[in-house]
């Protein structure tokens, strides 16, 4: 597993690949992918026990990207981890591609659950963690949700079940960038007090800077016997690209050639730090 400095570098390599994919393909959600990059880097390169040469290994740790529109970040992490070659990048969202517009567990090696219809990831991960319990396996299940998608009631249905079954192999990480498609999560969804909500539902609940890999690792590795873990990761939408940070116009969009050059320059400077 990588140290925190390398994890931070990996987060930025993921970001650079996200920008490259979206620019070349001409479609996608850059800012939500950028906010999730460090969490995904920490999971795949600092925490999870997986075998890229054996994506269906039955004892692997599982990851569900509930905010499936951030899949360029997941595809980049899987590629950098060795699941598939960069040659797939330009096929994203194109006909006959293994890289669908939202994650597809049957088409993309390393994708553990189909996702993209918001709100459903936590419930799927609950089933995966419950399966570990029923099958006496010790794999762990991680799910990354957006904060806006916590408006979907099914999250809280699943949270009740996860706590009832004391699923201490389950970790939900909330990419708490504070923005959803239409604006702030407070103004659009009325989504407030997330740590208190998860705690009330029976999760051990921690908060961390979602762009500080040391803090993320520490939170993700905190023991939580007898209950699922929730890590509220405080993130910045568009993190790492100056003109995308805090700018919800980049929820979905494609950089111009000049913007692409600038974004890549900024990210490569971060990688070389």
């Amino acid at each position: 597993m990588m140290d925190t400095r390398d994890l931070a570098r990996m987060g930025n390599r993921i970001r650079r690949d996200v920008i490259e994919m979206i620019y070349r393909v001409g479609d996608g959600h850059p800012a939500p992918s950028l906010s999730a990059a460090d969490v995904i880097a920490c999971l795949y390169f600092g925490v999870m026990n997986v075998r890229p040469d054996q994506p269906d290994w039955e004892d692997r740790d599982r990851f569900v990207l509930s905010k499936g529109h951030a899949c360029p970040a997941l595809y980049a992490a899987l590629c950098l981890k060795g699941y598939f070659s960069r040659d797939l990048y330009p096929t994203l969202r194109h006909i006959d591609s293994r890289l669908q517009g939202h994650p597809d567990m049957k088409k993309t090696p390393g994708v553990d659950m189909t996702s993209g219809s918001l709100g459903n990831g936590l419930a799927a991960a609950t089933g995966m963690a419950l399966a570990a319990k029923l099958l006496n396996k010790d794999y762990r299940t991680y799910v990354l949700t957006g904060d806006g998608e916590l408006g979907e009631g099914i999250n809280w249905e699943a949270a009740q079940t996860a706590a009832k079954y004391a699923l201490d192999s389950l970790t939900v990480i909330v990419d708490n960038n504070g923005m959803q498609s239409g604006g702030s999560i407070e103004s659009v969804g009325g989504i407030v007090n997330l740590p208190a909500k998860f705690a009330a539902f029976g999760f051990k609940t921690l908060e961390a800077d979602g762009h500080d890999c040391a803090a993320l690792l520490s939170a993700l590795q905190t023991p939580h016997p007898g209950q699922p873990l929730c890590v509220i990761a405080h993130t910045v939408k568009g993190k790492g690209v100056s003109f995308m940070e805090h700018n919800n116009a980049w929820h979905k969009g494609v950089p111009s050639p000049e913007q692409y050059d600038l974004a890549v320059r900024e990210l490569e400077a971060l990688i070389d730090e």
Partner: peptide
């Protein structure tokens, strides 16, 4: 008792939990 997973009055979640269980071979 271990073979019956109770999701409560929550059909959407019950189906997702089933999807998760099936993805792991149940």
């Amino acid at each position: 008792p271990r073979r019956i997973v109770e999701a409560g009055i929550a059909e959407g979640s019950a189906v997702m939990i089933a999807a998760g269980l099936a993805s792991a071979g149940l």
